[in-house]
Amino acid sequence: MTEPLLTIRNLSVDYRIDTGRLQALRQINIDVPKGSIVGVVGESGCGKSTLISSIIRLLPHNASVSNGTIEFEGANLLDLSENEMRTMRGTRISIVFQDPMTSLNPVLSIEQQMTHIQYRDQRSTSDKLNKSLAMLESVGIADPRKRITQYPHEYSGGMLQRISIAMALQAQPSLLIADEPTTALDATLEVQIIHLLKDIQAEFGCSILFISHHLGVIAELCDYVVVMYAGEVVEQGTVRDVFHNPAHPYTQKLLECDPAGIQTKTRILPVIPGEIPDLVNLSGGCIFSSRCHCVLPDCETHIPQRREVTSGHSANCHLLSA
């Protein structure tokens, strides 16, 4: 791996709820190397959104980081003051959200929104406008000079997502977090956005942390993949290693379930039986043991440690040490 840009070490986040302490993230380790695209994949309840909120430090009031560090460009984000963190957001780290229809302000024109977010720059309004136009052009909006004066409702979903990406990149951040940016879009548009992100990454050289539940998209777009389950990272490595050679039973099952991977017609599709365990009362064993198809005696009593499968590919599973 090349030089790291974002290094998350032993990150644990809890929520205080009526029934106790909900351990939403436990001992998360993730590396985002400079200039790479890292995919985070997992099903609902795996802690993807908590992870993003911890990185940009916008956790809900009842959440707290109980352990760990988030190193970004040499500083621990968790140690920064609120002011320093605010400068960090939008300039060094920016986000593209899932639903472009609600992430843009409906009563401001695109021009207003794109110039407003450049408020930190000491430049003339026409310079800012030109920069906005150039950004729109680079995300594939045709005739930007005419379209920039329009309002969000005059654009389609795919176009709005392009604009969100343009706005996120305007300050040339070194890390772009994309939170399921294609989920709200149709399949043919999804493909367009994936290609756009790939081109953008090559052009601007930023790193992208791409969150998705869609395995196919991750396989196509990302260099590295992190598989999360119920608040833990269960497997990570290069996309090729993880998808061709999944070491954790959860990853194996997940790949098996993806309908895009099943080419022959069948009346009975594979599923993962059971449900995500209660994160308030943890069992003390492997988090996946209740749904796993190859449980060992150790699985119910010991939390598996991270082990290398091959260089750069690791999984948290007792099968690897057996």
């Binding site: 493909v191 396989a219 196509e220 090729r240």
Partner: peptide
């Protein structure tokens, strides 16, 4: 062809559509 397959080596000769509906 718009549905990407979970195989990083599958370089589908994709038919990509221009624009939107």
């Amino acid at each position: 062809s718009a549905s990407p397959s979970p195989d990083p080596d599958m370089q589908a000769d994709r038919i990509e559509l221009k624009g939107e509906i």
